[in-house]
């Protein structure tokens, strides 16, 4: 187990290092990143000053190593627009995005798992077909369209909920549903497939033959085995929710990291964009790592395979 965890930690560190390298070189796609960091009105002298002050006139390799060292120390640079550390700007927005992602996760798991179970256990019924259609439709629904429709119906026409902005719980409802429905479809489909796979196994048949009641069979046996694929899906889905927040936050004027990303691109505050991408990637890597460890706790066979993946 220790060896397995160590190997996974090593892989995660390599991935983090790789992401930093990738972001560094994307930044230099146009040759000179100075132009990303100065306002459009900057004069030639301004540009030269910024280039020297940020050390962009040094050799590429030196810049790369300096960049790695800075990020490793948690220094993402100074926002060119606001003149305060990027980490400070990002930290002020994190709670909002976490709140939104939490609400969306609640929607996706809270609806997805029962829907998936209903689809697996109630096959053939008309209501199941309707549910399947709904799940399929949610999967193809762009969040920025469902978000606008929610605003139209629940805020403009019915007037039940506020259309945008952050504030009380009521503000969280519409964005959570807009963001969560897509993941809901994934959870429902994985739950359905996992349950169907289990339902056909011998232990289920023998348990039923022994007279194990259906609820007990479901909660004690089926759900436990079905949890394995759900865990790995959760890691992917949580990182999808965080990434999807970019668009949903823009639709609902929700003041989280997503809205910050878009604002920073518009105001050409490149280091903030870069900081968000780095942190988003680190979180994704961390979630995958956590899922792998959890996965191996639930299903010891994975560890014995030596983690050849």
């Amino acid at each position: 187990m220790v060896l397995f965890v160590l190997r996974r930690i090593g892989q995660a560190l390599i991935a983090i290092f790789g992401v930093m390298t990738l972001v560094f070189f994307v930044q230099r796609l146009t040759g000179d990143p100075t132009f990303l960091l100065v306002p459009e009105t900057a004069t030639r002298a301004d540009i030269e000053a910024v280039r020297r002050s940020l050390g962009l006139d040094r050799p590429l390799l030196v810049q790369y190593l300096a960049f790695l060292a800075d990020v490793a120390r948690g220094d993402f640079g100074l926002s060119y627009v606001q003149r305060i550390p990027v980490t400070q700007i990002i930290a002020s927005r994190v709670p909002f995005t976490l709140e939104l992602a939490g609400g969306a996760l609640l929607v996706s798991v809270g609806l997805g798992l029962p829907f998936g179970a209903a689809m697996a256990l109630g096959r053939g019924r008309a209501s199941t077909k309707l549910l399947t259609g709904f799940v399929f439709a949610s999967q193809s629904m762009p969040t920025f369209w469902s978000g606008i429709l929610f605003i139209l119906v629940f805020a403009v026409w019915l007037g039940w909920l506020p259309p945008s902005g952050a504030g009380g719980w009521a503000n969280l409802v519409l964005p959570s549903f807009a963001l969560g429905l897509l993941s809901m479809a994934t959870f429902a489909r994985v739950m359905r497939t996992a349950l169907l796979d289990e339902l056909h196994k011998d232990y289920v048949r023998s348990a039923r033959a022994r007279g194990v009641a259906l609820p007990r069979l479901f909660f004690r046996h089926l759900l436990r085995n079905a949890a394995i694929p759900l865990i790995s899906v959760s890691a992917i889905e949580i990182s999808q929710l965080l990434a999807g927040a970019v668009i949903v936050e823009t639709v609902f004027a929700w003041p989280g990291l997503g809205a910050l990303t878009v604002q920073s691109i518009v105001s050409r505050d490149f280091l903030v964009v870069q900081g968000i991408v780095l942190i988003g990637s680190f979180v994704t890597i961390g979630l995958n790592f956590a899922a792998d460890i959890l996965y191996s706790v639930v299903d010891p066979r994975i560890r014995l395979d030596g983690g050849a993946a």
Binding site: G18, I265, V273, V277
Partner: peptide, 21 residues
């Protein structure tokens, strides 16, 4: 290894930072 790295960056973020550049 490059594939692994690309897949660990959320796709929309990677697209956004590249378009920003």
């Amino acid at each position: 290894r490059t594939v692994d790295i690309f897949l660990s960056v959320p796709a929309i973020l990677l697209a956004i930072i590249t378009v920003a550049v």
